[in-house]
Design a protein around this nucleic acid. Structure first.
Lengths: 132, 132
DNA sequence: GGGCATTGTCTATTGTATACGTACAATGTA
DNA sequence: TACATTGTACGTATACAATAGACAATGCCC
């Protein structure tokens, strides 16, 4: 039984590929627990209309998430959230995360965000994450 | 007077554009303070050889960093690190950072990295950042 | 000052990826 | 069984990434 679909916002003007934004945004919602296993996601056509893109673009995003084990896709039925058992993290995954984090923070600093602001935000995020 | 150039590692097999990896990696080093204003960066050709790519690929990365105010580029002279005065952060920059962070963490969790590990890593990172 | 190597820049060219248009196949429903 | 719904497959237009190679500005050495 699907709840009200959480809002997913994308930036059509961004250089970042739209399908990638959809993947990343939906994955964040899934990890956050915004969907229960068995929940229906919007159909590729419906979400495409909402976002103002072609339905194949959404379909591509859904396929990525399906490959990661988040979704079950079937014609005529739609996209259903799966009770997912995540993989074990590889050393590369951890290392890659650490590097990406450093680069992301460096970008923010380069953009003028004060270090204190970033540190505060990150610290709060870590605290919230630890409680889960 | 240039120091020994810190190692910059890129992944040619990654789908992420090489020039973007170079930009992101070098920016992180610059923010970290690995270079002093006035330091020479490797020439586009030298770094290209080190990384195994074409010198135009490195040149493109250097141009991005120059546009951000990190580098001064001149023919015959090379790439010199500038004493940079960063911009003031826009609201969009802060917001974008927050979203990207959430997506990055979600990806790591999806890849199987334990939440506790991430929280720990982020927390330590925030602490180190706050001290600066 | 002249000659020459060095270094970043410019202009194609090629391969690849993104997004779209359209037709198709599988599923659900009346 | 019809028919609508939904994801999929395939072709195409366009933009981007990376390369190749020639060019222009600078520095250096005699």
């Amino acid at each position: 039984m699907p709840r009200n679909a959480p809002v997913l916002r994308i930036d059509l003007a961004s250089a970042r590929p739209v399908y990638e934004q959809i993947v990343s945004g939906l994955r964040a919602l899934l990890v956050k627990g915004e969907f229960e296993p068995g929940d229906q996601l919007p159909t590729v056509r419906q979400l495409a209309i909402d976002l103002g893109v072609h339905h194949n673009t959404v379909a591509e995003a859904y396929r990525v998430l399906a490959a990661e084990g988040w979704l079950d896709l079937r014609r005529g039925r739609g996209a259903v959230v799966i009770d997912r058992r995540g993989p074990k993290a590889t050393a590369g995954a951890k290392h890659g995360f650490a590097r990406r984090l450093e680069e992301l923070v460096a970008k923010a600093i380069s953009d003028g965000v004060p270090r204190a602001t970033i540190a505060e935000h990150i610290g709060a995020f870590a605290k919230k994450l630890g409680k889960t």
